[in-house]
């Protein structure tokens, strides 16, 4: 069993994935460790008297001195770049170059047979950093998985600074002051992006069939085609056969998608209003809708994965021109 995993993991082009996983785990740990530590210090410092000579504009400035170790508190906030920073950069550069050298000498960049358009490898895979997108093809049609969602990822990343109106947590690690932002980021980056890459690399075999790690990649495995569309699924459950018609599928699909985004945005909005949360006022309607749209678009992926794997549902909306 381990043989198969090792065989995939030790392919030269997959070594970066293994390295990335280790690095992501390490930095995940590091950032949360720093965030929780800062949160603890700030909670403790909130009750303490202001440090001697400390500035007193806003709470961020006051508490920050406590984030340094005891012996460094009260030292100048700035140090000269030469030699302190330049020295570190130099050491860091040497370390990276050494790593790169030792990586490049024993492990050769992959080179397969000359390209041949008549000889399709099975599975044929995109470069590893795009495997998340390729794996989305299982759950969405190419125009969504390959074009629409990547565009939304890029635009969604770009709007982050303009919709995050929380003034706290600017320039230091913290979790308590911005839990929603951090949880959403890690869900998107780690669970969706990185995990999809891992699945695409290690679990997708011939015909893009799913194989558990270690399972033999059998190209002749028979997979029953049992996928049904959303309206057929509802028809099966409710017993109303009229729902199976194309028109019913179209209408049901549109209603479902509108309800998904509509309820997804309206329910948290009303709930926040009832809580008299200040977030909603700081955000404003436009920002709120942008956040809601991108958040629920992101959530369509895990939702579709669950629908597919548990209920074999293929499309939500079927039209003559495109399917969702």
């Amino acid at each position: 069993m381990w043989h198969n995993i090792f065989k995939i993991a030790s392919k030269p082009d997959n070594i970066p994935i293994v390295g990335m996983l280790l690095l992501v785990f390490f930095f995940w740990f590091l950032s949360f460790w720093a965030a929780f530590k800062n949160d603890r210090i700030r909670r403790a410092a909130a009750g303490k008297p202001r440090p001697e000579g400390g500035k007193s504009k806003g709470d961020v400035v006051d508490v920050i001195d406590f984030m340094y170790p005891e012996e460094e508190q009260g030292l100048p906030k700035k140090v000269s770049c030469w030699p302190h920073l330049v020295k570190l950069e130099f050491i860091c550069a040497i370390a990276v170059m050494a790593l790169l050298m030792f990586w490049s000498i024993p492990i050769d960049a992959p080179l397969e047979e000359p390209s041949d358009s008549t000889l399709t490898p099975n599975p044929s895979k995109a470069p590893w950093y795009f495997l998340g997108l390729q794996d989305m093809l299982v759950y969405f049609d190419p125009w969504i998985a390959g074009v629409l969602l990547p565009t939304f990822i890029i635009v969604g990343l770009m709007v982050i600074p303009y919709v995050d109106v929380n003034p706290k947590g600017n320039g230091y690690y913290t979790f308590a002051e911005r839990p929603f932002a951090i949880l959403v980021y890690w869900f998107g980056f780690f669970v969706l992006w990185v995990l999809e890459i891992v699945i695409g690399t290690f679990c997708r075999g011939p015909g893009w069939m799913f194989f558990w790690p270690g399972q033999e990649w059998d190209p002749h495995r028979v997979v029953a085609e049992v996928n049904i569309n959303w309206n057929e699924f509802l028809a099966n459950i409710s017993g109303i056969t009229a729902l199976k018609s194309e028109t019913a599928g179209l209408l049901l699909g549109i209603v479902t998608i509108l309800a998904y985004f509509g309820l997804g945005m309206a329910v948290p909005y009303l709930w926040l209003r009832r809580q008299e949360s200040s977030i909603i006022y700081r955000l404003g309607l436009i920002r709120y809708c942008v956040v809601g749209f991108f958040f629920w678009t992101m959530m369509t992926l895990p939702i579709k994965i669950v629908l597919r794997l548990m209920f074999s549902i293929k499309y939500i909306l079927v039209t003559p021109w495109f399917n969702i």
């Binding site: 080179l111 390209s115 041949d116 399709t120 044929s124 895979k125 470069p127 190419p142 390959g146 074009v147």
Partner: peptide, 18 residues
């Protein structure tokens, strides 16, 4: 221009069809 690159780019650019 080997099989790896050729098919990876084929898979990637096939998305643009859609």
């Amino acid at each position: 221009d080997d099989q790896l690159g050729f098919w990876a780019v084929t898979v990637g650019t096939n998305m643009a069809r859609a």
